[in-house]
């Protein structure tokens, strides 16, 4: 049914079909200069760690109808926070970030893609915090006076 319940494939059975895929996938910006830049017809995605390159290809061609030519996968290990960084012999890990999976998707040569400038006309950063405080003031006021003891009232009167 979904990607969560995989059935074993038996010879003679039809191919596995996913009707409600729950994979996620996000487009990531890449640098335009330097050795990490990528060709114009290529896009970098951060993908669900369960996805294989075949999954990425199927996902993008079937759902997004992109002209995918090739998919390359990169696995990036999360940073480890050591208790004692310099001690090479007896250091112990305190925390490790999750590993990330990236896909470099090559499309047909005719496709050209530039990551748009999302923050071209961004609002002023100044006074941002005050703005949020103002926005949250009402919510906090409500939360202070809300009556959560509604065991007998029922669903009709809202949350």
């Amino acid at each position: 049914m979904s990607a969560k319940a995989a059935r074993l494939w038996q010879p003679g059975n039809p191919q596995r079909r996913v009707f409600l895929p729950d994979f996620w996938l996000a487009l990531v910006e890449t640098p335009t200069v330097g050795r990490h830049r990528i060709p114009k017809n290529c896009a970098k995605f951060e993908i669900d760690p369960r996805m294989s390159r075949h999954d990425v290809r199927e996902y993008l061609t079937k759902i997004y109808s992109l002209p995918v030519r090739d998919v390359r996968i990169e696995m990036k290990m999360g940073d480890i926070e050591w208790q004692t960084k310099k001690d090479t012999r007896y250091k112990t890990a305190m925390w490790k970030e999750d590993d990330k999976k990236f896909a470099y998707v090559f499309m047909s040569k005719s496709v050209e893609f530039d990551f748009p400038d999302l923050f071209r006309n961004a609002d002023e950063l100044m006074g941002q915090v005050d703005k949020y405080k103002e926005q949250l003031a009402d919510v906090e006021q409500n939360a202070r006076y809300v009556n959560r003891d509604r065991s007998n009232v029922g669903k009709f009167f809202g949350l």
Binding site: L27, F113, P116, L118, D123
Partner: peptide, 18 residues
């Protein structure tokens, strides 16, 4: 013209605080 525009929000919302 971009095929990958499906991955971005409406351009009116770019750079908005809220």
């Amino acid at each position: 013209n971009s095929l990958l525009q499906q991955f971005f929000d409406d351009e009116e919302n770019f750079g908005k605080q809220e």
